[in-house]
Structure formats: C-alpha cells, structure tokens
Write a protein that binds this DNA or RNA. Structure first.
Lengths: 333, 333
DNA sequence: TAAAAGAATGCACACGTGCACATCTGTCAT
DNA sequence: ATGACAGATGTGCACGTGTGCATTCTTTTA
C-alpha cells in the first residue's frame, strides 16, 4: 500500500524526510517551497508529491529564524463592546490575512495602557504592530523603533517619532455636525464626549465647538466617563433645553436616544441627534441615526499598507493619513 | 558611560551578547530565563541586569524550535457583525492571554468552511485551535489529530473523533422558551431560524418544537437565510396570527422586534418575543428583550481549559461540556 | 577529616529551515 | 572544438535557543 507512510506518532515530519523520500537533497526541498528559487519543474513536482504523501508542511517558525522575519503582526485592541471596534478588528485581521500575515490579537483592557501587553510582542519577532486601543503605547515606542518593528496607530494620539498614523477626518466631522444641526433649526447645541483617552473624540469635540463659535451658536460640552451606551442613556437628563446634540460615537448615541425617549422626548422633533462611526445599529429601525460613516475597511487597508511600506523602508519620516468621513442622513435630524 | 551598549542598528541582541556582558556562559543566560532551572541567585541577577541594559528579550520562536512547542493558539471565527461573536472573541482571547498563550485570529468568511484558513495554522506549530465559525473544519480534523494539535469546537456540529466540544444547553433553552411563551398566554407559536450551518440554532429549534408538541400548542418553523438583523426585520411580515416567537438569537430578534413595530404590532401585547445570547443590545432600552443568557466568559474559560488539558494528555476520549443558560426576564414577554 | 551528596556551571549538540558558495550539467556562440 | 554561460543541484554554515552530560565547587554527614 502507498498510503501515508507513517502515522507519525508525535514525530514531526521535516524537510529531511521529504528529501529522502523524493531522492533529492534537503536544499531542493527548501527551494521547492520557496518562490522564485532555482528548481527544475520535475524536481519540484517530485518534492511536492513526496511532501503531500508524508503530510509535510514547512515550519514557518524555523523559516523565520533564518530569514530573520516573521509573518506575525500584533493587533492591540480594547473596548470590543463597542460594535465599531469589533468591525474594525474584523477588517484589520482580514486585511492582514489577505496579505499573508498572521494577526496576533491582544486585548488591552479599557483605559489601561497598551504597554503592558505589547511588551510580549517583542518576543515573537512580529514584523509590525497595529494599535487601536484607547491608550496608545508610549514608553515602548522607542524600544520597538530600536528593534526595527514599525507601529501604526489607528485613530490615536499625538505625533510620535517614526510612528505612522491613520486618523479619520475629525475636523470635517466636527464642523459638518455643527452645520447640519444648525441648518436643521437647532438653537441650543451640545456635544457629549468623554474627556478621556480617545484622541479622535477629543478632536471632534474641539472641531465641533470651534464651528459653533464660528456660527455664533450657543453650545455646551457635556462630559461623561466613557463613550458607552450606558453613559449615553444616563446623560440624557442633563440635556434640558438642548435641541441639537453631537454624540461623539454611535454606540453612546444609541443610549442617548433611548434615554431621551424614556424621558418623553421626541427625536428629532425635540432634540436632533447626530452620531459618529455608522455602526450597524445606527441603521437599525429603532434608531435610524444620522451619523458619519467612518469606512473602517478602507482604514484597515490604509493602516496595513502603511505598515508594510515601513517594513520595506523603515527610514522614511512618520506619516499621517486622513480617511475621509461622509455624512449619512437618516431620521434623527 | 554605562548607558545602552549599542544602538543595535538592525542587529538583534542575542543570549550570547548577554552572556558575554554578564561574564557567564550562554547556558546560564538561558537558565536565568527558564523557570525552575538550576541557577544561583547571583548569576540570575547578573544576567537579568545585563539583559535589561542591552534590551535583550528571549526569542520565543527559537525557544519553540527546541522545546517543540509554541505559545500560539489559533482562533477561527466568523460573523463578527453579530455582537455575540465579538464578545466571544474578546473573552476567548483574554482567557488565552491570561494563561500566557498568543491567539492567532483567523476570520473565516460566513458560511465558508474553516478548512481553508485553518490549513495555515499547521505551519506555525500552534499548540491548539479554538473554532467558533459556523462551518467547522471537517477535512482537516484528521490532519490536526495526526499532528497532535488539539481542537475545541464552541457551539458547533456533531461528534468528531478526538475533538472536544463546548456547547450551551440547547435543550433547556428550547424547552424553557416554549414553556415561557405558553405561560404568558401565547396560543400560536413560531420559531425563526436559519436551517443553515449553525448547529446550536438547529438544536434549539428542535428542542423548541419538541416542547411545543409536548405542550400541545400549535407552532410553526419560519426559515430565514441567515440569523441576522436584516433577516429578522424582513421576516416580521411572515408572522400573521402568531403571538409568541422564539427567535434563535438576539441579533435577529432585534430586527424582528423592529419589524413588528414597523408593521404596527405591539411587543409584548400582540406578540411575545424571546431571544437567545443576551447580547448587550438585548438590554438596551429600545428592546428590553427577554432572552437566554449564554455566559460567553464562562464558555471561553471552559474551552481553553479543555484545550490545555488535551495538550497535556492527548489520548483521552473526546469530551462534551454543556454550559448552562439562564432565562433573563425583561419586557418582551 | 574524609566521603558523599548536592548545587551550579560550561560544553556541545539538537531543533528545522534558508542561503551563500561550489560543483556539475547542458547549451550556444565563436 | 572550445570557451562562456546559465540553470540545476548538493554541501555546509547560520539563525537563537533549550538541555543532557560531565565537571567543578560547596555543603552536609558519618
């Protein structure tokens, strides 16, 4: 019988085994599985055949040892209760896998600095790191730079040397939010946001307030602890007299709308609400939330591209890409 | 000056460098970073000091080469638009990281078999795989078993040799759903579910119908394509005459409720609705959905435990653990 | 005090692979 | 016919680490 040679009890099958079976040298096996290597078609075929029979698979960890590179990319994320984050992670991992990278997902607890978990990544020769957590790494950035491991921050904080960033167009969102609310007849505006670690939230808030000032409309800042559904729900009663709200993300906006309705308010008749992110729930019939679409598939693609280009050329100055946002008009304004 | 020895331009610092700086052998360095190894406290201290000064980190990939094990665990998931899946992934990865494993996240497209992506994992010496995708791997299971890599399926299909499974208590959920709806006065029951690949969905459906039969209540099966919000929304108009619905998951139940309301129906006055999973949205004020809580943190913990125990002893017969579900009574019934 | 036991350390090999280099073959132009 | 040349193949070293074994040093026991 010519079935699988051995049940290979625990024993791993190596390139040496394949070489012997195919009657070639071990180097030939290596070349057969290396693109653009110098092998004759017949040899390659023999090797592939033997490999299949033995159930051989190239050990990418060992390969990485000699090539000094790995296919791993760290993905640091926090707050997956926010549906936007979940989609973001899905898009990021899909984009990575599509380009033959393996994402190592590290959940960082809300608010906690990413330094702690990221420290682990340096042990695995990751060829890059994507960060989406609220609190970006700071202390470790230098170490990653020294190790030649590029980092790309998505929607995160201030300029860090040799760290690329992808950020959605916060200025456009803030300005357009204010203009849209005013245009719809709102006189007393407010923006709900946590003063916490979320960088884009702060920027949008700032842009919104600036625009309100320019439009000469009264506007208040209503702070919350976290930009979450619960906080949005609770903060509704702090909106007496307000007839136009920019809620810093949809996740919280859903809570805000539920809170307003619970208090007997009508949306958009009494209060106009505008959110940000265009999470799936924003289009749910219960909300029909007017919001800004932040295309996280495009953003993921941008981030991965940035990462790859910096792997190839680590010397370029840090870059800063802005992803456009677009207003999705629904029923809350 | 005694600062960082060299800027280490590209050059990786290895255990050899540390050994030289600490004035010990390379083996001593290895032992200093290996738990329960035979090293004197002084030597360890010298090594750690030198390592810190040089910015040395043990290369876990190389370590895995000699120890023949890696810290990687594959996590195969699909359908992250369903919030339950997102939470599941968060819990699973957290549980893995807590036990010092590194999760490699592989998104499997909806409906697509997991075989395609899982094939990659065998190249990375993963010490285990957790599968949450709808369509579980079938063809590859034997190969993983031969390679000695344990697999644990979460809420997935039928018995596969030497593959452990964790499944929520579908019987209890189906039965209790029927009983609860009848108790609330419903006369015409229905269950909405996709006949597709989701194993637990099928089981719950079956248990529900069985219970209805036992209770001598009329009940219909209303099929959909996918168990998603959109389908739930659309299927509402197919529920003429029905006054009690078991919706196979909350994600779809939210759509169903929105659909019923859009048609002018009252929940729970006209139609009682009961869901499953207790996703965050189920507790949102807009829904207040009565549902079954499936504790995905507990489930993740169970799955990881099962995985680890099988790493240690691969010979045990395949196991099957049932996670209890609990009815969360809210306002839709 | 001598002997035995134990702890600490260094040497050398192994893990599975890629790649530089040397070697060998066959082809084509001169 | 001879040389140059390109392609295919084998040999040997390197990647960074763990660990068995022998050796040395320290402590305990009779």
């Amino acid at each position: 019988m010519s079935g699988p040679e051995k049940p290979s009890r625990g024993r791993k099958v190596t390139s040496f085994d394949v070489a012997r079976r195919a009657g070639v040298s071990r180097a030939a096996v290596s070349r057969a599985f290396t693109p653009n290597a110098s092998v004759s078609p017949e040899t390659r075929e023999k090797v592939v055949k033997a490999a299949k029979e033995l159930g051989y698979r190239v050990n990418y960890l060992a390969r990485g040892l000699t090539t000094r590179r790995s296919d791993f990319v760290g993905v640091v994320a926090a707050g997956m209760d926010n549906p936007f984050r979940a989609l973001q992670i899905e898009q990021i991992t899909k984009s990575l896998v599509r380009r033959n990278f393996r994402p190592i997902l590290l959940p960082a607890d809300q608010g906690e600095s990413a330094d702690h978990v990221m420290d682990q990544l340096l042990h695995y020769n990751v060829s890059g790191v994507l960060v989406t957590s609220d609190a970006p790494p700071t202390a470790l950035c230098a170490e990653f730079a020294a190790a030649g491991v590029p980092i790309v921050l998505i929607n995160k904080a201030d300029t860090i040397p040799s760290v690329d960033r992808v950020v959605s167009d916060t200025n456009a969102a803030g300005k357009l939010a204010a203009a849209t609310l005013v245009e719809a007849g709102a006189k007393q505006l407010a923006v709900v946001a946590a003063p916490g670690p979320s960088y884009t939230a702060r920027c949008r808030l700032q842009a919104f307030m600036g625009a309100c000032y320019a439009l000469d409309v009264e506007a208040r800042v209503i702070p919350v602890e976290h930009n979450s559904y619960r906080e949005g729900l609770a903060v509704a009663e702090a909106l007496k007299g307000v007839d136009g709200v920019f809620c810093i993300n949809d996740y919280m906006a859903c809570g805000l709308i539920d809170g307003l309705r619970r208090l007997g308010g009508k949306v958009p008749d009494d209060v106009r609400v505008i959110g940000h992110d265009d999470i799936p729930q924003a289009s749910w019939a219960a909300y029909e939330l007017t919001t800004f679409r932040q295309p996280c598939d495009v953003q993921a693609e941008q981030a991965v591209s940035l990462l790859i280009s910096r792997m190839d050329d680590p010397t370029t100055a840090e870059r800063f890409e802005v992803t456009p946002v677009s207003l999705v008009r629904r029923a809350t304004v």
